Amino acid sequence: MTTHARARPSNSRHRGAALLSAMLTVTMVATLAASALWQQWRDVEIETSERARVQAAWMLGGALDWSRLILRESRRAAISSNQTLTDNLSQPWAVPLQEARLSSFLAADQNNTVDSDADDVFLSGSITDAQSLFNLRNLVTDRNLIDEGWLLALQRLCAQLNLPEQQAQLIAEGMRASLAGGTDATLVPQRLDEIAWFGVSLPTIQTLQPYANILPKRTAVNLNTAPVPVLAATLGVSASVAQRLATARTNKPFSSLADAQAEAGVDLMLDDDHEAVVSNFFEVRGRLRLQQAVVEERSLVGREGTTVRVRWRERGALTPPPAATVSR
């Protein structure tokens, strides 16, 4: 009896050790399984995101090519019919594409097989005339001097927008210094928000956003598309005269600077270096909504004759297009 009583604690210890070992084994297996499952989920998510990114890039690239085709055909049609070259808000390129299912575009092509996934893809976009805005590149001449005429126009624009006129001088000096180069000079800005390098405040940049931009070279302002504040600042006229021109071009776009002069009702000093009725630079915006992801792209294209080339592209979370059409 004494011998059996002494053996029980040993058997209990063996059973406890076996149970502990089994629990550790189960814990280790569960940990490894959870780690493998998480790794597999992570790989699937990465592959899904990469596939969505590539698909979005291809679709937005196709939308950009479509926009280039519209701009090219608009110019080609005018040349083939011997019409006066003009760009205005009544032309097809100026009509924005409202958000629509991608499947609706694919269904129009009999050579395409519509994928059911396309029902969850929505595309929208717009083309705007980049020469409708105040080009800050105009502030500096080809000899790297500040253009006093354009500086005065920018000061008038700042006054209309309730901005300090000193901001115009700051922008002009910054553009001149950056274009001159040198060790202490900043890079030449290509986007409006980059004039913050000159010390321009963020509120000023946000206020100028619907009315100013930076183009690769000096350009004239298109009187057929410019918003009222830009018209008034460029022409040096009152807001009422600028509004009169905006109303007149709605009924009949200007085919020449003489047409704008006749509609103004006041004497204007118009010349091809400052004003125009045609444009060579356009901004293209595309927005793709793919399931839960939203990808936006903005591009600047330049048109020379019937050739349309992309000058720069950027993709990501972008600001909405300028709402300057409200004051047109």
Rank of each mutant, 00 (worst) to 15 (best):
D117Y: 03
I171P: 02
Q169R: 10
N162W: 14
V230A: 05
G125H: 03
A100P: 04
N224P: 00
P164C: 05
E314Y: 00
V200G: 02
P203M: 13
L318A: 04
L89I: 04
S104D: 15
Q291S: 13
M1R: 02
L64E: 14
G125P: 09
W312Q: 00
Q55E: 12
Q169K: 09
E50D: 09
D147C: 07
M23T: 12
P216I: 05
E148K: 13
A153W: 02
L37M: 11
L257K: 04
L145K: 13
R285S: 14
S238T: 15
A78E: 10
A264W: 06
P320R: 08
V221P: 01
R176L: 12
V121S: 00
G182E: 06
M269F: 06
Q91L: 04
G181H: 07
V301H: 12
S67R: 14
P96T: 05
P164K: 11
Q160Y: 14
S256L: 03
D129W: 03
L290P: 00
G16V: 07
L133F: 14
W58A: 06
R298A: 03
G199C: 08
R315K: 05
G302K: 12
G174N: 06
R68P: 07
H274A: 10
F122D: 05
L89S: 04
V121E: 04
R75G: 00
Q160W: 07
P189M: 12
L64W: 00
S279M: 15
D87F: 01
A177E: 13
A36I: 08
T113D: 06
A78N: 07
R51M: 09
P189F: 13
A232D: 08
V278H: 15
P210G: 12
V221F: 01
A5S: 13
A232V: 09
G316P: 07
W150T: 09
L69W: 14
N82A: 11
L106N: 11
L154A: 05
L231D: 00
L208K: 05
Q291M: 07
G182K: 01
A212N: 08
S327T: 10
T2A: 14
I127D: 04
E283C: 10
L145E: 15
R313Y: 06
C158L: 10
E99I: 01
P189L: 11
V308M: 13
G125R: 02
D273W: 09
K252D: 08
R191T: 08
G286H: 06
P92E: 13
L192G: 09
V301N: 03
P189K: 09
R285M: 13
L179E: 06
L97T: 07
L151T: 10
P321I: 01
V277C: 11
V200E: 05
L102H: 01
A57V: 00
A159F: 08
G16N: 03
A34L: 15
G174I: 03
M59H: 02
D147Y: 05
L19T: 02
A262N: 04
R8G: 01
N111H: 12
R315Y: 00
E47F: 12
A276G: 11
N88C: 07
Q169H: 10
R101M: 11
A264Y: 06
E263S: 01
R42A: 14
D142L: 08
I46V: 11
A220M: 03
Q40N: 15
L288C: 03
S74L: 05
Q167M: 10
R218Q: 07
D259T: 04
A7R: 08
A63N: 10
V237I: 08
A63E: 09
D65G: 08
P227E: 07
